Simulated scan of single mutants.
Amino acid sequence: MANIIRKKRDFHNVSRGWNIVLNIIAGLFAFICVFPFLFVVIISLTDEKTLATNGYQLIPAKWSLDAYRYVFESGDALLRSYGVTIVVTLVGTLISLILISLYAYAISRKSFRYRNFFNVFAIITMLFNGGMIPTYMVVSQLLGLKDTLWALILPLAMNAFYIMILRTFYSTSVPEPIIESGRIDGADDFYIFLRIVLPLSLPGLATIGLFSTLGYWNDWFNALLYIDDPNLVPLQSMLMRIENSIAFIQQNSANSSLSMTALQSIPQDTARMAMVVLATLPIIFAYPFFQRYFVQGLTVGAVKE
């Protein structure tokens, strides 16, 4: 027994040299992951003429904020689109977590009578859907959600794949004896879910929350279908409209001297990179938030002996 303990201790004790090597490898891997975004930021801060002359450089010959000036020339429209996206992302993620967590918990319990039916019901929606036209008719005509924020929230609120992930997490990470002990103490199902299951499920909830946040933040298709009001256009759709405006001027520059003049004043490539930065930078701050709950979820809740 002592030899086994000693071998385990020796396995976990890494020499200083290997520790340095492993840290260097981890640092290089992290740099490889971060470098593409940093390079996009550098390009967005490069002068357009310098970029056309010298190509992509890590240290541009001339820095410029013209790309961001061009994007922000839309003024209140861009800030308003940021506000719409933030509201849709926060409200949508909250609603999505509530619906998915309740659905997944119900079908994860063997005592639930209709467990198999709702399992199959969720799986079928992963394989088949009604199609774009029936979905559009339901959202816009039957539910009357056209030109409302709910048209951007409700279609993405439920996701069968996320339900399957969280159902599996509940089944494998929430011990049945804990739930039975709660029932013996007189707790009902909602109390058990809120006080016992959720604290044990924070890693799974954080994962689903992160997926939902990314889905809402990057969504532009629902806005294309259901939003005509310029005051309700989300960020991704707004940036796409700016991109389409640049592409339109490029395609028609040969037929109009006015378009050629406008084209020369537009930071084309750097503006595209600026749009990537503006669309990506805010969502980056969501990762530390969810990472905090990953760590917290691993330490909250345990079976006391």
Rank of each mutant, 00 (worst) to 15 (best):
L51W: 01
Y293E: 06
G27I: 10
S96H: 02
E180C: 11
I249Y: 02
V295C: 00
L143T: 01
S237R: 13
M158I: 15
T299R: 08
F290K: 06
F11K: 12
G215P: 04
N119P: 00
G27C: 10
V295Q: 11
I5C: 00
V197Y: 00
S101H: 02
P203D: 02
L210P: 06
F248T: 05
V197L: 04
F221A: 12
P134E: 09
L145P: 05
Q57V: 07
N13V: 12
N231D: 14
R167W: 01
Q57S: 10
A157K: 07
E48H: 05
V276P: 01
V303N: 12
S44R: 02
F169R: 00
T213M: 14
I179P: 05
Q236V: 05
Q250R: 14
N222K: 00
T50C: 11
F190A: 09
K146L: 08
V40E: 02
V277M: 04
R183H: 07
M126H: 11
T85M: 09
L281Y: 04
Q296I: 10
M240G: 13
E180F: 11
N116V: 13
F190D: 00
E243M: 14
G75H: 00
Q264I: 06
G209A: 02
Y105M: 05
L210N: 06
T207R: 05
N231E: 10
V277K: 00
T135E: 11
W63M: 15
R16K: 15
M164T: 07
Q236G: 08
L94M: 15
F248L: 04
V41S: 00
R113D: 04
N19L: 12
Q236L: 09
I246H: 04
I208W: 00
L278E: 07
L143M: 06
Y191M: 13
G83M: 09
E73G: 11
S237V: 09
K304Y: 01
L198Q: 03
N244C: 07
S256H: 01
I42C: 12
S245N: 14
M126D: 11
I178W: 09
I123C: 08
I107T: 01
N252H: 15
I100V: 13
F29C: 06
T280E: 08
L99K: 01
A247V: 12
I59P: 01
T213Q: 08
L154I: 15
P36S: 00
S96E: 05
P60Y: 03
Y191E: 14
S111E: 15
F31Q: 02
A30R: 06
T135M: 06
I98S: 11
L210K: 07
Y191K: 15
A286R: 03
F294W: 05
A187T: 07
L225I: 11
A302W: 06
A30Y: 00
S64Y: 10
I43S: 00
F161L: 13
S257R: 10
T46I: 09
N23K: 13
Y70L: 02
L127R: 08
S259F: 15
F29L: 06
I249N: 04
F211D: 04
Y70M: 02
V174F: 04
P203H: 06
R69Q: 12
W220S: 09
F29Y: 03
N218A: 10
T168G: 04
S237Y: 13
L58E: 04
T172I: 10
Y170E: 01
Y105V: 08
L143K: 03
